[in-house]
Design a protein around this nucleic acid. Structure first.
Lengths: 331, 331
DNA sequence: CGTTAGCACTCCGATGCTATGAGTGCTAAC
DNA sequence: GTTAGCACTCATAGCATCGGAGTGCTAACG
């Protein structure tokens, strides 16, 4: 069984009994293999595209392989080097770190690589900063407790005065800082505005911007790289379009990656719950900040992806990211 | 000639004399058309995939069509609405504005849409801001004179002290602010560090971050959306991969879009100077801030893109972006 | 002289047929 | 339980055929 999966992963062609014999140097005859294989078909681990073609692992087959048969390969030296070097530059910035990670992963695996920052369900506002940049324009920066940084420009109808800034800071430091991101809603902000009395009018656009930034900071931000790598894989021949469409929508991917508990996750074919991923597998792992689960990094490829080699790679990368991230966000 | 191009744009099939007659309701016979068409072939405006097939416009043909024959269509009402609505939300932030623009363009045209912020050749540092977020961690925000905002986290080896911040601000406000982005190099920063004497050591990582942000702010940042739209177009059948590869590399695209002078630019096929764009056309237009050229917004599609309809759309969108942008960056 | 009708010719694409061969399932012998 | 042998299946490639859309050319027409 392991041999079948491995050979298929290597060649991409349905594997027949003779071929298997030749390639794997087994000490039994092709007839034996045939018997075994038809048994495996009966068990649902292999399937045949049509009678008298070789066998292909089914989703269930891959699952069994990954869970029971696969022997993880060491991440080889050159790979490690590349990962380390690729990640290190500018790695004290969390966003940059993830960018690097996703780029390096796409490059090395020839698959599409994804990262998802944690959905900020539990995150709160750590800091809000205003920087005046013109008479009426401001820059607002929001930092969440999970280290997510979002900024935007905004424009007021009136001049920016020190008093305005000060009253915003006062308000922010007593009501906004520490507030959970997801609970910042227009309604809640209206409440604040109301309680401000006279300044309310000037404050409205500011609060609007806060809401915008909070929303963006709380959303799981996903980065995708190397989509074009998938175009090369023949298994996607006619159907790339749907897959690409799917990948370009951030939400489902983000959900998928955040949903998991625990370190590593391998989703084979439809296990992911999305029809568009029918022919694809996901391998992803959570990274940790200060020992607690944060976002996820992973890759998307055809189901006949090289699990034994790539799973350890993803894990290695994720571990590295965890370390850097923890360091970058150290108190 | 115009009829040929238009029909081909509509159907995507090589157009023959009879078909042209039927579809366009012309008042001459097919033989006349044949004569005319073979003349156009001789001129290099049309080509035939093989003898006894219809004609398709050559790159030169499209060029001639766009320059001389095409009658621009009005941007229709529903389109305008969609553009206006799509752009408006959060439009006082330049980056967001571009995101909206590129998204709406991709959506409406079923092509890939791109924006390029201006390469910051002439931009300088307008403002640098530091925000302490932890004992040893800082957030640095850089705003360029062209309104580009970049931020990152960074981590020092020592604690962040008010004196450190102050001396950075002093240094920044007298030497860095107003400095052209492209001239900020490690060498130049070393000079600054040296002149600081005692504080130099603590300042190094800060200056490193400045250099990083300056570099990123000066690079033409490009946003791409709707690549997957291109997968549907049959003209790209086998060759999507190279195109995607090309689109995912930011530099050439950015250069291409920045190189132009003047409002609108249409590049047909190889006119762009890149072999990967052989089968594609670009339509893009510069947007203006306070009346002077800034970045560009445009789209990429197959050469048989609907020029008459899309050129005005791009122009309309770009004009809108110019207005919003100017407003957002008003002094 | 430009336009048109007629006609022979070209060549792509679809269709159908056959040969090939990798692969199977089954049975019988080891 | 394993193996050898054999008849059978079925996708794929190759080849010939055919139809049709479209062409170029020539000759007639206004």
């Amino acid at each position: 069984m392991a041999a079948v999966v491995e050979l298929y992963i290597r060649t991409g062609e349905p594997v027949g009994s003779k071929l298997l014999l030749a390639e794997m140097g087994m000490h039994v005859s092709s007839a034996t293999i045939r018997n075994d294989m038809s048994e495996l078909v009966a068990l649902g681990l292999l399937e045949q595209p049509h009678t008298s073609a070789g066998r292909i692992p089914s989703a269930k087959g891959y699952r069994y392989y990954v869970d029971h048969l696969m022997r993880r390969q060491e991440v080889d030296e050159s790979f490690r080097k590349l990962i380390e070097v690729g990640i290190a530059h500018g790695a004290d910035d969390p966003a940059r770190l993830l960018e690097n990670a996703v780029a390096v992963l796409a490059e090395l695996t020839h698959c599409a690589a994804v990262t998802a920052t944690p959905a900020g369900d539990r995150a709160s506002i750590r800091r809000i900063e205003l920087v005046p940049v013109g008479q009426k324009t401001l820059m607002m920066v929001l930092l969440s407790s999970t280290g997510v940084l979002k900024s935007r420009m905004l424009r007021l109808d009136m001049e920016v005065t020190p008093t305005l800034l000060e009253s915003f800071y006062n308000m922010a430091s007593c009501t906004l800082v520490g507030y959970p991101l997801t609970e910042i809603s227009p309604v809640m902000l209206q409440g604040i505005a109301a309680s401000l009395g006279g300044n309310a009018l000037a404050m409205l656009p500011l609060l609007g911007a806060v809401s915008d930034l909070a929303q963006r900071a709380s959303q799981s931000q996903i980065m995708l790289e190397g989509q074009s790598n998938l175009l090369g894989h023949k298994e996607y021949d006619g159907t790339v379009y749907e897959l690409m469409e799917f990948l370009n929508k951030a939400e489902p991917l983000g959900q998928l990656m955040n949903r998991t508990q625990g370190g590593l996750d391998v989703r084979i074919g439809e296990e992911s719950g999305y029809a568009q991923l029918e022919k694809s597998s996901l391998i992803f792992a959570k990274y940790f900040i200060h020992g607690s689960q944060a976002g996820a990094i992973g890759l998307i490829g055809p189901t006949r992806i090289d699990y034994a080699r790539l799973i350890p790679s993803v894990q290695y990368l994720t571990k590295l990211v965890s370390d850097f991230m923890t360091q970058a966000l150290e108190e």
